Amino acid sequence: MDRKDKQPPGVLSHLRGIEIGSSDASSYCARLFADFRADVQNIEPPRGDRIRRTAPLTVKGQSAWFAFLNFNKSSTIIGPAAAGTITRLTALIEDCDVLIDGLDVDSANYPPIDVAAIRERHSGLIQIEASWFGRGGPYADFAAADSTIRALAGLIKLVGPAEGPPSHAPDFQTGNLAGLWGLSRRLLR
């Protein structure tokens, strides 16, 4: 019996989620689903999610950020270039209730997945996508980073001395807010 089996069922215990791609926002959103007892599986490449190598690191060299974002989740390794990758990912997505998609931020080298075709076969699939600027609009094709989003939102001016340049605190605030928004949109449906 693992730790999840010892805890009472939660609000979302009837849901199965798949997390693909790698972004702070999608990872945090998936963690929140898992915290509410959804069964969430993080799909990682053989080298592991890039967040596994993100500071701060423990004395043993493990990412505290990865541990935080992946609490209550399980991981499945699927090689992006392996034979049958698209078939395997498609089957996992077709068998879940919620797809938490961070491919637009970091694809982890996975081939494109035809989510629209999956949704035609699985009309109840809830897809939560993390991207820097969305798929439409004037900035849709722009790349970004947490610092870019902070600057555009005006948060940068709040950090640092008034007489000096703004500084950036690596607290992943924009990813956390985006992940929280993704979960709340599901719960408020």
Results as ranks from 00 to 15, higher is better:
T76D: 00
C96I: 09
S74V: 05
D101S: 06
N42W: 09
N70F: 02
D35L: 05
K60C: 06
F66A: 07
I118Q: 08
A34H: 02
R53L: 05
N109G: 00
D106L: 08
L89V: 12
A151I: 07
R52P: 01
T90F: 09
T148E: 10
L103G: 07
E44F: 01
K60V: 04
A25M: 12
I93M: 03
F36P: 00
A151D: 13
V40M: 09
I77V: 15
R50A: 11
D104V: 01
A55K: 15
S26K: 04
G61A: 12
D101P: 04
Y110P: 03
G84A: 10
V40S: 00
L32Y: 02
L69D: 00
E120F: 02
D35I: 00
L155N: 05
L99T: 02
T90P: 02
D97K: 09
A64E: 07
A151R: 11
P56S: 05
L69F: 03
H122T: 14
G154T: 08
A140H: 03
E129M: 12
I51Q: 06
G154I: 11
F71S: 03
S123H: 08
E44N: 04
P111G: 12
L32G: 00
I51M: 10
L92A: 10
Q62P: 01
R37E: 10
L57K: 02
E120H: 14
D146W: 04
D101G: 03
A116G: 04
